[in-house]
C-alpha cells in the first residue's frame, strides 16, 4: 500500500516538476512570478485535443504540436503582458500576469465551453503493469515518469553544453552583465518562455490523458501549485524544483491514501506547505540564502 502510494506520488510529482521547471527558469531569468503559466498548460491540452480530433494526428505528433503551440503562446504572453513592464515594480507585472491569466481562461471557456470532456481516442490502450503482488502502475503513469526523466536530461544537456543554455545561465546570474557580454537578453527570455511553456504543455497533455478529462480551467490549480513547488525547492534552483515537485506529489498521494475527512481539500495542502516554507525558510531547500523574500 505504502509503496503503491509512493509510486503514484512520484508520477504525480513528475507532472509538477514539468510544470514548475518553466516557472523556476522564468523566475531565475526575469525575477518574475509568471502567473499565466497554468493557462499555458491548458493551451497545450487543447492544442493536443484539436490536433487529435481535427488534424488526425497520432498521440506523439499531437504532443509535439501541443508543445509548439504552447511555446508560441508563452512567448506571446511574455511579449504582450510582461515585456512592456520590464524593470518596473514587481507588483505591476504580477497584476498584469493575473489579468492575462483571467482573460485567457475566460476566453477558453467561451470558445470551448466550461463543461469537461473526455480526452479524444488515441488508439492506445491503458494497460496495468504489475511490478509485484501489491504494486502496479498504468502505462500512462509510467509514460509520465519516463517523459519527465527524458525532459530533465535534455534540459540539463541544453543548459550545460549549448551556447544558448549558457547564455540563459548567465542571464539568470546577472542580466545586465550578460547583456554587456553580448547576450541578446530578449532572445534568452523568449527561449526561456518557450522551453517552460513546452514543458508545461507536455505535462498538461499527459495529465489530461491520465485523468481522461479536459476543461478550460484545468490549468489554474496546477499552475498555482507549481509556485509552491518553486518556493519549496528554492527560487530559481532547478534541482530544488525537481526535489520539491516530487515531495509535493508524494505528500499529496500519501494524504489521499491515509488522511480522510480533513478540514482542507487535498489541493490546499500545497498552499499550507507554501506558507510554512515562506515563513520558516524562505530560501527553500536549495535556494540561495535569502533573509526574506
Amino acid at each position: 500500500m505504502l509503496a503503491q502510494q509512493l509510486l503514484n506520488g512520484v508520477a504525480l510529482g513528475f507532472t509538477y516538476v514539468l510544470i514548475a521547471i518553466g516557472l523556476t527558469m522564468i523566475y531565475g531569468v526575469l525575477k518574475l512570478l509568471h502567473f499565466a503559466h497554468g493557462v499555458i498548460y491548458a493551451v497545450g491540452v487543447f492544442a493536443a485535443m484539436i490536433g487529435i480530433l481535427y488534424l488526425n494526428m497520432n498521440f506523439i505528433v499531437a504532443c509535439l504540436f501541443a508543445m509548439i503551440i504552447a511555446a508560441i503562446c508563452g512567448v506571446a504572453v511574455e511579449r504582450f503582458a510582461y515585456r512592456p513592464l520590464r524593470n518596473v515594480h514587481p507588483i505591476t507585472t504580477l497584476i498584469s500576469g493575473v489579468g492575462i491569466a483571467i482573460f485567457l481562461e475566460s476566453l477558453f471557456q467561451v470558445v470551448f465551453s466550461s463543461d469537461p470532456r473526455a480526452f479524444p481516442d488515441t488508439g492506445m490502450k491503458v494497460s496495468v503493469w504489475k511490478i509485484s503482488e501489491s504494486i502496479s502502475i498504468t502505462n500512462v503513469k509510467l509514460t509520465i515518469i519516463v517523459v519527465g526523466l527524458v525532459a530533465l536530461v535534455l534540459l540539463y544537456a541544453f543548459l550545460r553544453w549549448t551556447k544558448m543554455g549558457i547564455a540563459i545561465q548567465a542571464t539568470a546570474q546577472d542580466m545586465r552583465a550578460a547583456s554587456l557580454m553580448g547576450v541578446n537578453v530578449n532572445r534568452v527570455v523568449a527561449i526561456t518562455f518557450m522551453i517552460g511553456s513546452a514543458f508545461a504543455a507536455i505535462a498538461g497533455v499527459l495529465v489530461a490523458y491520465d485523468i481522461n478529462s479536459i476543461y478550460p480551467t484545468m490549468g489554474s490549480v496546477p499552475g498555482l501549485k507549481a509556485f509552491c513547488v518553486v518556493v519549496l525547492g528554492g527560487l530559481g534552483s532547478i534541482p530544488g524544483t525537481i526535489i520539491g515537485g516530487l515531495i509535493l506529489g508524494i505528500v499529496e498521494s500519501l494524504s489521499e491514501g491515509y488522511l480522510n475527512g480533513m478540514i482542507i481539500d487535498k489541493d490546499a495542502i500545497a498552499f499550507v506547505i507554501l506558507i510554512i516554507i515562506l515563513l520558516v525558510k524562505p530560501s527553500g531547500l536549495f535556494g540561495r540564502k535569502v533573509e526574506k523574500v
Binding site: L33, I91, L94, L224, I263, A268, V272, L278
Partner: peptide
C-alpha cells in the same frame, strides 16, 4: 516576513485554504 509578489502568492494561498 514576505513581501511584494510573494505576499501576493501567500495571500492567494491563504484565500484558497480558507475557502477550502
Amino acid at each position: 516576513r514576505v513581501s511584494e509578489d510573494f505576499l501576493a502568492i501567500t495571500t492567494l494561498g491563504l484565500g484558497l485554504i480558507i475557502q477550502s
